[in-house]
Computed example of a mutant assay.
Amino acid sequence: MAQAVEEWYKQMPIITRSYLTAAVVTTIGCSLEIISPYHLYLNPKLVVKQYQFWRLITNFLYFRKMGKFHVLYV
């Protein structure tokens, strides 16, 4: 099973693999409180006045904190 996941991951295009990895790392970092979500959201004033250009990218990487009982209801 682990080899199947590893093989699937390696067969992804490099852009998709990079985005998936960055999104997982960012979301886990926020869940473990290593990164604050307030440092990731898009704030145009901070981008222009304080040159926080990472906000142009990181707002697409964070989804929400992962928890034990997060269930997606459809």
Rank of each mutant, 00 (worst) to 15 (best):
S18F: 10
V25R: 09
L40F: 08
Y9T: 08
Y38A: 12
V25Y: 05
V71M: 10
I57V: 15
I28S: 02
A4W: 11
M66A: 10
A23D: 08
Y38S: 13
P37Q: 02
F63A: 00
N43A: 04
H39N: 12
T21F: 04
W54N: 04
A22K: 09
Y19D: 04
L46G: 00
S36L: 05
V71F: 09
L20W: 04
L61G: 05
S36V: 03
T58E: 09
A22L: 14
W8D: 15
E7L: 11
G67R: 06
N59H: 15
V25M: 11
V24Q: 07
A23N: 06
A22Y: 05
Y41W: 11
F69L: 11
F60I: 02
R17D: 01
V48P: 05
H70F: 10
Y51R: 14
S18R: 08
I28M: 06
L42A: 09
W8F: 15
F69T: 11
Y19M: 07
E6L: 14
K68S: 14
M66T: 07
Q11K: 13
V71Q: 10
L20S: 05
A2I: 10
K45R: 15
P13E: 08
L32F: 06
L20D: 04
K65V: 01
L20G: 02
E33Q: 14
Q52D: 07
S36G: 02
Y19L: 09
I15K: 10
E7H: 11
V24G: 04
Y62V: 00
F53V: 06
Y62S: 00
A23L: 03
A2G: 13
I14M: 04
K68Y: 14
N43E: 15
T26W: 06
I57N: 08
A2L: 09
L40P: 06
F69D: 14
L61A: 04
F63D: 00
Y51A: 10
H70T: 12
T21I: 00
L72D: 13
L72E: 15
Y41E: 12
G29E: 03
K68Q: 14
Q11P: 00
I14R: 06
E6I: 14
L40K: 02
A4R: 14
L56D: 07
K45M: 12
F69K: 12
T21R: 03
P44Q: 05
W54E: 02
N59E: 14
M66K: 05
E33H: 12
N43T: 03
A4C: 07
I34S: 05
F53M: 09
Y62N: 00
W54I: 01
S36W: 01
M1K: 08
L46H: 07
Y73G: 10
A4K: 14
Y38V: 09
Y51S: 11
G29P: 04
G29M: 08
N59F: 15
Q52S: 02
V74K: 11
V5M: 12
T26G: 05
S18P: 01
R17S: 03
A22E: 09
Q52E: 13
C30Q: 00
Q52N: 05
K68W: 15
L61E: 08
L61Y: 03
P37H: 01
